[in-house]
Design a binder for these strands. Structure first.
Lengths: 197, 197
DNA sequence: CGGCGTTTTGAGAGAGCTCAACATCGGTGG
DNA sequence: CCACCGATGTTGAGCTCTCTCAAAACGCCG
C-alpha cells in the first residue's frame, strides 16, 4: 500500500500506546468506544461469538494494521479485540480525529479514500467466498492477491490464516495447493506463491 | 436506516437520471468511473466473472440503494452493473461530490459515517460466511438481521437472494427454514420471519 | 531435549450441492 | 376469463466434495 494508514493520517490525534500481554483484551464487545488503534507490534484479533458460543474470528491485525476504524461513528465496540501474541498498539482519540476531519478537507478526503479502499477489499473477500468450489475459490483468491506484473502472491501470516480468509478447513487448502503445484499451475516458496499462466 | 443515503447527502452533485432496459449495463468493468449512482426504481446488480467465466454476483441494489459508492476514489469500475429489471438510476458526478466534501466538513463527516456503516455491514456478512454449518449460518444471519424488540426479520427480495447472502444453495436454505419452523424455532409469513427465543 | 504450532498426508463420514419434478403465484396476451 | 409463461418456492434422492478426526514430519524457541 502506498497509501497513508489511519495512524499516519491522524498522528496528531495519538494519545499514546498500550502494551498487551498474550491473551489480554484491548477492548470487549459493548464497551464504550473512545479510541481507535493501530498495531505496532504483535498480533491482535477481533472475535465475536455465535449464540452457541463458538468463536468467529472476524479479522486478524498485524503490525501496521488498523483496529476498529469502523467504530469511529459507533458508541460501542461490536466485538472483542484480543492479543494473540504479546503486542503493542498506538491509541488515537476519536474526538480528536473527528476534529481533525472537520478542520482539514484534505485529511477528510484521505480518510474517505481509506474507507472506500477498505470497502473494496471487503467486497473482494466476499466475492471470493461466494465461489462454491474450494479449488476455484483458491484460484480466484490468488488471482486477486497477485501482483499483476509477476503474478506473485506474498502470503502474510500462515497458510492457516489464508485458509480462514478463504473460509475453508486448512487441510483442504493444503491439499488444493499441493494439487495445483503438481499440475504446474503454481509454484511455491516460503511465504510466496507464483501463478503460472 | 434512519441515516442519509449517499444520494440525499450529495443531492447537489446530481447530474440527472438514466433509464435502463432489462439486461442493459449501467457500466462495465474497466470503464472510466466518473459517476456514482443510486437506484430509483427496479433492480441493478454488480457482477464479476471468474477466470472460468462463471458469474459472481457481488451485490444486488434495489430502489434506494447506492451503486459503486466505493469507486469514488478509483478511476475505473471494478465490476459490471447490469439491470435485472427495467430500472432508473440517479447519477452523481464524482468531481462535484469531491468538491462538496472539501467545502462542507459536515457532509464530509456524514460521508465517512456512511462508509464506516458500510464497512460494518460488510464485516457482518463476512462474519456470517465464516460459519461452516449451514444451519448455524442461517441462525446467526437471522439474529443479526432481526429487530431487537420483536426478533423479527423482514426479508428484502426473495429467499434466493437471502440464500446468496448466506452463500448456500437456495434448496438448502428452504430445507433449513422448513426444519427450523418444524422445530418451532421460527415462524414464517410472506416476507417475514419471526425468531422464537 | 521437549513442547508447541504449522505443515502435510490419509481415511471415513456426512453435510450440502446438484439434478429433477412439481406447486404456486403474478403477469401478459389472446 | 383462461391459458400460458417465467420466476420463485418446495420437496426428493443420490453423490461428491469437503470437513473432521488422526497421525506424523517439520521447524522454532525456551
Amino acid at each position: 500500500m502506498n497509501h497513508l494508514s489511519f495512524g499516519e493520517l491522524f498522528e496528531e490525534a495519538r494519545t499514546g500506546g498500550k502494551s498487551l500481554a498474550q491473551g489480554e483484551f484491548l477492548f470487549q464487545k459493548g464497551a464504550a468506544s473512545t479510541h481507535l488503534y493501530t498495531v505496532l507490534e504483535g498480533c491482535v484479533r477481533m472475535v465475536r461469538f455465535t449464540s452457541t458460543g463458538d468463536p468467529i474470528i472476524m479479522h486478524t491485525a498485524r503490525s501496521g494494521d488498523g483496529l476498529a476504524e469502523a467504530s469511529l461513528f459507533f458508541d460501542t465496540y461490536h466485538c472483542d479485540a484480543e492479543a494473540v501474541l504479546p503486542s503493542t498498539v498506538a491509541c488515537y482519540d476519536k474526538k480528536r480525529i473527528v476534529a481533525i476531519i472537520g478542520a482539514s478537507p484534505q485529511k477528510s478526503l484521505a480518510c474517505i479514500a481509506f474507507f472506500s479502499r477498505q470497502v473494496r477489499s471487503l467486497r473482494a473477500l466476499l466475492e471470493v467466498r461466494s465461489i462454491r468450489s474450494a479449488r476455484d475459490r483458491v484460484l480466484h483468491y490468488l488471482m486477486l492477491q497477485a501482483a499483476p506484473e509477476n503474478m506473485t502472491v506474498r502470503i502474510s501470516g500462515s497458510i492457516k490464516d489464508m485458509a480462514h480468509d478463504l473460509a475453508m478447513a486448512h487441510e483442504t487448502l493444503y491439499r488444493i495447493l499441493a494439487n495445483l503445484e503438481k499440475e504446474g499451475k503454481i509454484s511455491r516458496d516460503i511465504g510466496i506463491i507464483k501463478i503460472h499462466h
